[in-house]
């Protein structure tokens, strides 16, 4: 059962990778990278269950946090050209 779910994750990860390669604009790529991160979070949690090692869930939590921060940081870099805060 977990193996089947992992296979579905792998198939959709391949499809999302195709969008990252094909994507016309930057927004397509950023969106696809975010979706790939979500799929990887699910995959890590499923693998933890599949291998009977629930410690993998901690890694999944950290991956979800870093995925969010990374997406917002890349979009901020793209919009303003630097990581600085707003000038007053």
């Amino acid at each position: 059962m977990f193996l089947a779910a992992l296979t579905a994750c792998a198939i959709s990860a391949l499809l999302v990778l195709a969008r990252i390669v094909l994507g016309k604009t930057t927004f397509d790529r950023v969106l696809a990278v975010n979706s790939l991160g979500t799929i990887i979070v699910i995959g890590i949690a499923l693998h933890g269950f599949y291998a009977n090692r629930p410690e993998f869930l901690d890694i999944a939590i950290v991956y979800a946090l870093i995925n969010f921060i990374g997406t917002v940081a890349i979009l901020k870099l793209f919009s303003t050209g630097s990581f600085k805060g707003n000038k007053k």
């Binding site: 089947a4 198939i11 959709s12 499809l15 999302v16 195709a18 969008r19 699910i42």
Partner: peptide
């Protein structure tokens, strides 16, 4: 869930 993510990835393409 598998159906949901596979259809989502197809839609992304």
């Amino acid at each position: 869930g598998s159906l949901s993510i596979i259809i989502g990835a197809c839609g992304l393409i």
